[in-house]
């Protein structure tokens, strides 16, 4: 009873955090998907300088903890005149970090496609961009989607790391409420349940994608 009563008091504050967590997940998802696609296409192009740059970026970013990347973007970039809000820095940092997972996934999808498809597309006069759009990407999507669902779940949970640069997302709010009420048990149980509630739809989506496209 006590739990429910306290929950009622904490929930409005925590729900504001849920809103920011969702916004941050979506923003980082868009950034990481677009950047990931760029890295993967650069790599797939076979053009040496593009391949090199893509590999260099992916390997550098993958080798640095997300926390450190977030600190860097939020605290170091301002010294170069790039001033971002905590939310912007969080979205950019998570987007960049996740673009590398995305890139690897997209690359695997692209490379799984039979080289004969490229030749068939070229032999009817397609240029590269048309071939990617009409022939390669529509086929790559089948292999790319199942892991994509799982990456979304990981990203959702990793948004909690943005609390270290003061983004007022769910984990951050939880910490604030807990430290002012000393009711750790109720607060963190609620926080955990809220994350679970957010990820359940994604888990269902991921297993749907797995079933729809995975087998084959």
């Amino acid at each position: 009873m006590q739990f429910l009563e306290n929950s009622g008091r904490y929930l409005p504050l925590l729900l504001q955090g849920v809103g920011i967590t969702i916004a941050l997940t979506l923003a980082a998802l868009v950034i990481s998907t677009l950047l990931g696609l760029v890295w993967a296409l650069m790599r797939y192009s076979g053009i040496a300088p593009l391949v090199f740059v893509s590999k260099a970026i992916v390997n550098t970013v993958r080798g640095i903890p997300i926390l450190v990347q977030l600190f860097y973007i939020y605290f170091v970039l301002p010294e170069f005149g790039i001033d971002l809000s905590a939310f912007q820095a969080g979205a950019l940092g998570l987007g960049l970090a996740y673009s590398c997972y995305m890139a690897e996934n997209f690359r695997a999808g692209l490379e799984a496609i039979d080289k004969g498809q490229i030749e068939a597309a070229q032999s009817i006069g397609m240029k590269w961009s048309l071939m990617m759009r009409r022939v390669i990407l529509p086929q790559a999507i089948r292999t790319v989607l199942p892991p994509y669902g799982n990456t979304m779940i990981m990203l959702l949970k990793d948004t909690s790391q943005a609390s270290v640069i003061t983004v007022a997302e769910l984990t951050m709010r939880g910490k604030l409420v807990a430290s002012s009420t000393f009711d750790n048990m109720t607060v963190y149980t609620l926080v955990a349940l809220l994350y679970l509630a957010l990820s359940v739809p994604l888990v269902i989506l991921a297993s749907y994608l797995e079933r729809r496209f995975g087998a084959r």
Binding site: D114, G116, Q117, E119, A120, S123, V135, Q139
Partner: peptide, 11 residues
């Protein structure tokens, strides 16, 4: 244009 040994149709 070209016709290939393994057809290479768009699946």
């Amino acid at each position: 244009t070209m016709v290939f040994q393994r057809f290479n149709l768009f699946p």
